[in-house]
């Protein structure tokens, strides 16, 4: 049971990441691979504040969001000059730079030694070191993030986003300042990722740069492609699938000397098969 709760908490964190990335990638058509960087900023902010100063969890979340908004504003501004594949590569580049900062800014982040001993949130005296309580808390936030995303997607703001995805120039003709919209959704997505990061840091109690690499951004992207682009429920489902899959594979018996690599092999094959047989993702309708 404890194990399942643990997986559930991880699933919730990644569902938040997936939903927030989907706003940017699936609905607006911006192929962002920077998400792990924002996830990281949120994590490190909470980690540093909770271990170095007396700041509580929730204020640290707020600060994490603020820092991420600033970072995503700057990065988004630069990225907005790019299209399609170049956007992806540029965002990838920013992720690499962020990772280098996490790794090398020793005085702040302790680099590869990581930050241990991150405490749990305090709220109305509830004991959050009980993982079940923590799960409820983080699920609640997932709910908030999900509802906010749904609201955005169904609003007129969301319609503009989808139009940008379909044909940016056309909607510019109508007088819409697409830069504003692209920047806004990028920042919103980043802020949500920061929330996920804060929860991750507090739950796992130890963070180091290895959690925010380029491959992490790719992983989040895979979650939403698998779940279905432009489908929020799909992102949640995708997160569930990709968190559970390696864990379920732990139970599939292979000779122990090669077990782990065999599981990686199966994992890779499943990705290929899924793309071959269901390229629009589990719940998706939109194929770019």
């Amino acid at each position: 049971m404890e194990y399942l709760i643990h997986l559930a908490i991880l699933f919730t964190v990644y569902a938040m990441l997936g939903v927030s990335l989907n706003l940017v990638v699936g609905y607006t058509g911006l192929l962002s691979l920077t998400h792990a960087a924002f996830y990281g900023i949120g994590s490190y902010t909470t980690a540093i504040l909770l271990t170095q100063s007396g700041v509580d969890f929730f204020p640290s979340v707020v600060l994490g969001i603020i820092l991420t908004l600033i970072a995503s504003f700057l990065i988004g501004l630069v990225l907005s000059k790019f299209r399609d594949d170049y956007y992806a590569l540029g965002s990838f580049g920013f992720n690499a730079i962020a990772f280098a900062v996490f790794l090398n800014w020793q005085n702040l982040t302790r680099g590869p030694l990581g930050i241990p001993g991150i405490s749990k949130p305090e709220l109305f005296g509830i004991d959050f070191s009980n993982n079940f309580n923590f799960l409820m808390l983080v699920l609640a936030f997932l709910g908030l993030v999900y509802l906010a995303s749904r609201f955005i997607v169904n609003s007129s703001f969301g319609r503009v986003l989808k139009s940008i995805r379909e044909d940016e120039e056309a909607i510019q003709v109508f007088g819409y300042n697409t830069l504003y919209f692209k920047l806004a959704v990028f920042m919103i997505g980043a802020g949500m990722a920061a929330i996920a990061g804060s929860f991750f840091a507090s739950y796992i109690t130890f963070i180091d740069p290895s959690g925010f690499t380029l491959m992490e951004s790719v992983f989040i992207l895979v979650i939403i492609i698998l779940g279905g682009l432009a489908n929020l429920r799909g992102s949640v489902l995708g997160a569930l699938f990709l968190i559970l899959l390696p864990e379920i594979l732990r139970f599939v018996g292979f000779p122990s000397s090669v077990a782990a690599q065999m599981r990686q092999l199966v994992y890779g094959l499943i990705l290929i098969l899924l793309m071959l047989y269901r390229p629009q993702g589990l719940l998706g309708e939109y194929k770019i």
């Binding site: 899959l245 379920i248 594979l249 732990r250 139970f251 599939v252 018996g253 499943i270």
Partner: peptide, 9 residues
């Protein structure tokens, strides 16, 4: 896979 894994679990 789910059944196999879940069953073993």
């Amino acid at each position: 896979i789910v059944i196999w894994g879940g069953y073993t679990m």
